[in-house]
Design a protein around this nucleic acid. Structure first.
Lengths: 208, 208
DNA sequence: CGTTATTTAAAACGCTTGTTTAAACTGAGC
DNA sequence: GCTCAGTTTAAACAAGCGTTTTAAATAACG
């Protein structure tokens, strides 16, 4: 395996565990068993390394997500559960692309929203706008009465639910095991969260 | 104002803005206009300072929350919206206790769940278990069909929604202003999120 | 084989971090 | 007025950070 990929793999798992700010280049290069200077040689800076880690996933995920969302729009009796379920297969396909890919990616997404004052939010929304656009279209078709402003809020709430859940999914799976003697996978967590966010987005419009 | 309180106030607003790890003691003491060593003199360590900032809020908030949740359980036709609405008044009362208290507290809560590998989660759940217990009781009364396992998941999803939303509430309010020309407050965000989480927790049980 | 470009290696740089030290100051109480 | 605990101060500490530099090792190619 190339030095570049060893760095990407190590950075990915450490970033997911301890956040971007909380992970040092020395930890990364030590786990990757490469020299410290290799990061700056191959990527230029830590910030560029973060972008590279995220891009590796997004380049794999975003076309699959977009086409899944376009597909689901052909459904004539589209429900919000259908829309959110469209995420399952593309997300789980990350596990083929890389072991534990789903978990790491969603955790990284969560980190990006809270670490580093939202520069990753800017990065994703500007670099991969197609996913968001198609998602909004699908939600609009499934729930046409939802106004633009409510849509804005509820999609952010949903992002929060998913991102937060996934960034602590390991802990949640542990608790589920000890409290309910359930051996769950990340896919079970995803399937659990879908009825929740679908109901949240589909909540009746409040009378203000 | 005492040095101790000057430190607490400065730490609070900086922690809310930039996270616990992202804020240095030098920034805090500089904004508080006190000497750097004063933090370690009065609080012992940065970690203890974080706990002190959170405790100042929780000691104010937790009895009000508990009694509001007990009160709402007297409602014979209790809905989930009622349960979540019980949080509004205690949270907004933090603004009397301190300017911008609600905003700061909820942002701090969000930080605590993502920064510092969840030590704050442990701190809150072990130090203030009464709030959680009463909350679970209220949800059970409003939605008795909800099983213990579903309850567990949905309460965590809700925690995620609220915590994530509030930790990025400033950014969301900014976007709402530029996109919809709305001048919103933190209380508007709270009122917006309630129908969402109530619908999420109240989602029909999935048929597995 | 020899030369050139690429990659690794170790060390150091300048800076920031949380914490500690030791001295100076402050203000009651005797 | 002196004492002494309680505070504040400036300076320094050791450790960790991202990054840069210099030299050695490796690979590619004519």
């Amino acid at each position: 395996m190339s030095t570049k990929n060893k760095i990407l793999d190590a950075a990915e798992s450490l970033f997911a565990d301890k956040g971007f700010n909380g992970t040092s280049l020395r930890e990364i290069t030590s786990q990757a068993e490469v020299n410290l200077a290799a990061v700056n040689y191959h990527f230029g800076s830590k910030k560029e390394l973060i972008k590279a880690v995220m891009s590796r996933y997004m380049n794999e995920l975003s076309p699959r997500l977009e086409s899944a969302l376009v597909d689901v729009c052909n459904n004539d009796e589209l429900t919000l559960v259908d829309v959110f379920s469209a995420f399952i297969e593309p997300l789980l396909s990350l596990n083929d692309f890389k072991d534990n890919g789903t978990s790491n990616f969603l955790q990284l997404l969560g980190r990006g929203y809270t670490d580093s004052q939202g520069f990753l939010r800017w990065f994703l929304t500007t670099q991969y706008p197609g996913v968001i656009d198609n998602f909004v279209l699908a939600v609009q078709k499934a729930y046409p009465e939802l106004g633009a402003e409510e849509m804005f809020w509820r999609l952010h709430f949903t992002m929060g639910t998913v991102v937060f859940t996934m960034s602590s999914s390991d802990a949640l799976i542990d608790i589920a095991k000890s409290d309910f003697e359930r051996d769950l996978q990340i896919s079970d967590v995803i399937r659990n969260v879908i009825p929740y966010v679908a109901a949240g987005v589909g909540a009746p419009m409040p009378v203000l």
